[in-house]
Design a protein around this nucleic acid. Structure first.
Length: 282
DNA sequence: CGCTCACGGGCGTCACCTTT
DNA sequence: AAAGGTGACGCCCGTGAGCG
C-alpha cells in the first residue's frame, strides 16, 4: 500500500531500536484504516462472504470504502448507475449481487462479534465475548464505557471486575470511546446495524461447566467453530493452548504438540466421540 | 477452462496482558 | 515473578466459485 501516514510518515507499525512504536494517526492514517477494515471483515468478526483483504484494499484505494460503516452503504452508492460494482474489473453481475446479499446478511450481528470487529487494542475474540456476556446489550456496554471514562468509580470498578479484563484493556476501551473521530465512526457504523443482545448461557447440569477444554487435530463431525460454540454454551471455557489448568483435551486425527503436552501433563484426552458422549446428556 | 481468490481447516511462535 | 492464556502473526493445504 503506497500511502504513508501523514502523522508518522510511516506505516501503522515501525521499529525504533528495541521499541515498536505505534502510529498515533488513528483514522487519518491510511495504513491503519485499511488494516482496521481488513480486521473488520475477518473470520471472527463480520466474516462477510466475498469481502476479504484483497477486495478491501481495492475498495479503500478507490475511496469506495474508507470506514466500516461504508460497507453497509455500498449497495446504495454502487448498486446502480454508471460506476456500479458489476462493471468493475473482476466483478460481474453475479458476484456483485452475492456481495450485496452477504453484506445484508451481516447487518444483524451478535454483540460479541461487533465488539471484536471494532479492533480495539487488546480486545480480541475472547475478551469481546467476556464483555458481551457481561453487558448483554450494546446500549449497556456503551453507557458503561462512557461512565468509566475517568478510570475511577463504580462503572470502572465493574469493568475491571470482569474475570479476564484488566486495567490495560479497560483503559484501551475507555480511551477509544473518548476519541471523538473514532467515536463518531463507531456511531455511524452502529446506526447501520441491528445488534443482537447476548444471552447468558444456562449452564444447568452441564458436565463440563467450568471446565477448561482445548480442541486439537481435525474434527470430523463438526467444525471447530461449532464445537467451540457448543462447548461454551455448556459453560466450558475453550482455550487454544494446553497447560496444567486444562481439564480436557479433545484430540482428533492429526493432533500434534498439544496432545504430546497433554499426555506429559496427565490431562484427560478424549477423541471426538468421547467428547460427544460426555456432553450428550446436557 | 485456467486462473485468482475466498474460505475453512490446520500448525506453530511469541509478545504481553491477567492472574496467582 | 511465574504461570496461564490471549491476540496477532506467519505459514501450510485443499476446495470451490466465478470471472474473463
Amino acid at each position: 500500500f503506497p500511502t504513508t501516514c501523514p502523522e508518522c510518515g510511516s506505516y501503522a507499525l515501525r521499529e525504533e531500536g528495541d521499541a515498536v512504536r505505534r502510529c498515533t494517526g488513528g483514522l487519518i492514517c491510511p495504513a491503519q484504516a485499511v488494516e482496521k477494515l481488513k480486521h473488520f471483515v475477518s473470520r471472527a468478526a463480520f466474516d462477510i462472504d466475498g469481502l476479504g483483504a484483497k477486495q478491501i484494499e481495492q475498495f479503500y484505494a478507490d475511496g469506495w470504502i474508507t470506514e466500516p460503516a461504508q460497507i453497509f452503504t455500498l449497495e446504495a452508492r454502487y448498486g446502480k448507475g454508471m460506476h456500479q460494482l458489476k462493471n468493475r474489473e473482476g466483478w460481474g453481475d453475479k458476484s456483485a449481487r452475492k456481495l450485496f446479499q452477504a453484506i445484508e446478511n451481516k447487518r444483524t450481528i451478535p454483540l460479541s462479534r461487533l465488539l471484536f470487529a471494532l479492533g480495539i487494542r487488546h480486545v480480541g475474540e475472547s475478551a469481546s465475548k467476556l464483555l458481551a456476556r457481561h453487558y448483554g446489550t450494546w446500549t449497556a456496554f456503551e453507557a458503561a464505557i462512557e461512565a468509566a471514562r475517568d478510570g475511577v468509580g463504580a462503572a470502572w470498578d465493574d469493568l475491571i471486575s470482569i474475570d479476564g479484563i484488566g486495567k490495560v484493556m479497560a483503559q484501551s476501551l475507555v480511551s477509544t470511546f473518548a476519541q471523538d473521530a473514532e467515536r463518531a465512526s463507531i456511531d455511524r457504523l452502529v446506526a447501520e446495524l441491528d445488534i443482537e443482545a447476548t444471552v447468558r448461557p444456562d449452564v444447568g447440569n452441564s458436565p463440563v461447566a467450568g471446565k477448561t477444554v482445548v480442541f486439537t487435530g481435525t474434527l470430523e463431525k463438526m467444525t471447530r467453530a461449532e464445537a467451540k460454540a457448543r462447548a461454551e454454551s455448556l459453560g466450558a471455557k475453550v482455550s487454544g493452548s494446553v497447560s496444567a489448568k486444562t481439564d480436557i483435551l479433545i484430540a482428533g486425527p492429526g493432533a500434534g504438540s498439544k496432545a504430546t503436552k497433554a499426555t506429559a501433563l496427565g490431562i484427560t484426552i478424549l477423541d471426538e466421540d468421547g467428547w460427544l458422549d460426555l456432553i450428550s446428556d446436557a
